[in-house]
Amino acid sequence: MTTILIIEDDDIMLKAVRNILTKAGYNVLTAKDGKEAFDKMENCEYDIVITDLMMPYANGLEVVSRLRSDSTKRHVSIIVVSSVGNEETITEAFRLGADDYLKKPIMAGELLIRLRKLIENRSTSNLKLVTKKK
């Protein structure tokens, strides 16, 4: 089962996304600020991170950059979900290695489709890696 870590400081949104994803059959972890996020990022197993950009203690870009600089977390896909309309920030997120970006207000259906797609892509690319090693 795929595990998803949701990092979001808006309580309503966090719970809502958690409920939707749980219903869709994912295993869900949550973090409500940068500190909790870093803690869970270190100590938990997860495959996909959905992160907000602005929150207490850290910003979403730091989350992305930290994940990408950690070689043991290479396999983790990152989706940035934010209401920021500022293009620079979005470009920055992608440059740091985010896989996808969704602007709030989001469409729940779209989020699920994108998640599915990321998981599919990942399994194929992982396969490649495995075959290469052999």
């Binding site: 940068g34 602005m54 203690y57 850290a58 910003n59 920021v84 309309g85 500022n86």
Partner: peptide, 11 residues
Amino acid sequence: VRSLLTFNYPK
């Protein structure tokens, strides 16, 4: 400094 960098503001 870390906390200064986390202002809720876009620019």
